[in-house]
Amino acid sequence: MKKLIFIGLAFLILTLIGNNVFGFTVGNEIVSVGDLKHEVLLKCGEPKSKETIGYIDRIVSDERIRVMKIEEWIVAVTSYGKTYYYSLVFEGNELKEIKPAGED
């Protein structure tokens, strides 16, 4: 019975996560949600593409609102002779989302 509950719980968690990835490796470096743009650039190099996909308002204080650009970068990572592509979504300067975007 415990094994069945564990399997059901694991399935539920994986379903909720979907295609989101929390991080990936580039050589000896790890790119993960929460990294800053300059850190990702140092680890991955220039992205294959950069697109502005929107803007978001963040309330900083009662009287101040910060508008941040939402950008999607496509980066390529080669591992064991295969190239993998990832979609990285930044809000302002912070990496918020990582999704697989195909492979060669």
Results as ranks from 00 to 15, higher is better:
Lys2Glu: 14
Lys2Cys: 05
Leu4Met: 08
Leu4Gly: 03
Ile5Gln: 10
Ile5Pro: 09
Ile5Cys: 05
Ile7Phe: 15
Gly8Ile: 01
Ala10Ser: 10
Ala10Gln: 03
Phe11His: 09
Ile13Val: 04
Thr15Ile: 13
Leu16Arg: 06
Ile17Arg: 10
Asn20Phe: 11
Val21Leu: 08
Phe22Pro: 02
Phe22Tyr: 15
Phe22Trp: 13
Gly23Ser: 13
Gly23Ala: 09
Val26Arg: 03
Val26Cys: 06
Gly27Leu: 08
Asn28Ala: 07
Val31Asp: 03
Asp35Pro: 04
Leu36Lys: 14
Leu36Val: 11
Lys37Leu: 05
His38Cys: 04
His38Gly: 03
Glu39Leu: 06
Glu39Phe: 04
Val40Trp: 02
Leu41Gly: 01
Lys43Gln: 09
Cys44Asn: 06
Gly45Tyr: 03
Gly45Ser: 05
Glu46Ile: 12
Lys48Met: 14
Ser49Cys: 10
Lys50Thr: 13
Lys50Arg: 14
Lys50Gln: 12
Glu51Met: 07
Gly54Asn: 03
Gly54His: 09
Gly54Pro: 08
Ile56Pro: 06
Asp57Met: 12
Arg58Gly: 08
Arg58Val: 13
Arg58Pro: 12
Ile59Pro: 15
Val60Phe: 00
Val60Met: 08
Asp62Lys: 15
Ile65Ser: 05
Ile65Glu: 11
Ile65Leu: 00
Arg66Gln: 13
Arg66Met: 14
Val67Glu: 14
Val67Arg: 13
Met68Ala: 13
Met68Gln: 15
Lys69Leu: 07
Ile70Pro: 03
Trp73Met: 06
Trp73Lys: 04
Ile74Phe: 01
Ile74Glu: 06
Val75Ala: 00
Thr78His: 15
Thr78Met: 14
Tyr80Trp: 01
Tyr80Met: 15
Lys82Gly: 04
Tyr84Ile: 08
Ser87Asn: 10
Leu88Arg: 04
Phe90Cys: 04
Phe90Gly: 01
Gly92Cys: 02
Leu95Met: 10
Leu95Phe: 01
Lys96Asn: 11
Lys96Ala: 10
Glu97Arg: 07
Glu97Cys: 10
Ile98Gly: 03
Pro100Cys: 02
Pro100Ala: 14
Ala101Pro: 03
Ala101Asp: 01
